[in-house]
Design a protein around this nucleic acid. Sequence first.
DNA 1: TGCCAGGCCGGGT
DNA 2: ACCCGGCATGGC
Length: 213
Amino acid sequence: MYDALYLRFGPQNWWPGETPFEVMVGAVLTQNTNWKNVERAIANLKKADLLDPFAITECAPERLAEVIKPAGYYNVKARRLKNLVCVLAEDYEGDLEAFFSGDVDELRRRLASISGVGLETADSIVLYAAGKPTFVVDAYTFRIVVRHGLLFPEAGYHELKMLFEDNLPRDPQLYNEYHALLVKVGKDFCRKRSPRCDGCPLEEFPHEVEEPF
DNA sequence: TGCCAGGCCGGGT
DNA sequence: ACCCGGCATGGC
């Protein structure tokens, strides 16, 4: 599947973002949200000189919410960003290198323990900001896997993740490209309600069982 | 013009 | 342990 996707769509150059910190912020802002909206919110953050752990820590929540408004859920996301940068600023003096150093699984647990950072956001940060090997599972991954009959719709996040990690070399660049390709093909062909994809082995994939995890 | 977007949390059974 | 409502803007 990976080879077919790569041959068809080519390198996706993920994650879109200039610095690891920008990637972290984007990971929170894109929760259940169109990336286009996130770009505007990030542009606003840059314009306001707020793309920095300490700047966000010191910023009033109401103002932060206003700046990230285009990304939607701006009140909850302002809180979530503050929760995230609080750990960086308080525990690591804003030093991302220090924060990212150490065991991969411990890092993702540390991230996921922050309120507002779930499993996918944590994995996105570990893979795309820290460049460490962890496979990112999202709604598209779920749909594509289930509609191909590779797992049952009852499968949880961890099972999805392990399907990939158990069958691929532990290579961050491969995980990076694979997940990006799944999102690309998901956007184009595997939306919530889309007609059956050509070649799908199931007579009818389960529209009625949709939401993952 | 609804439906959807690169989820996650907290409270209620 | 599940289940569910809430959160919100902008694009197609």
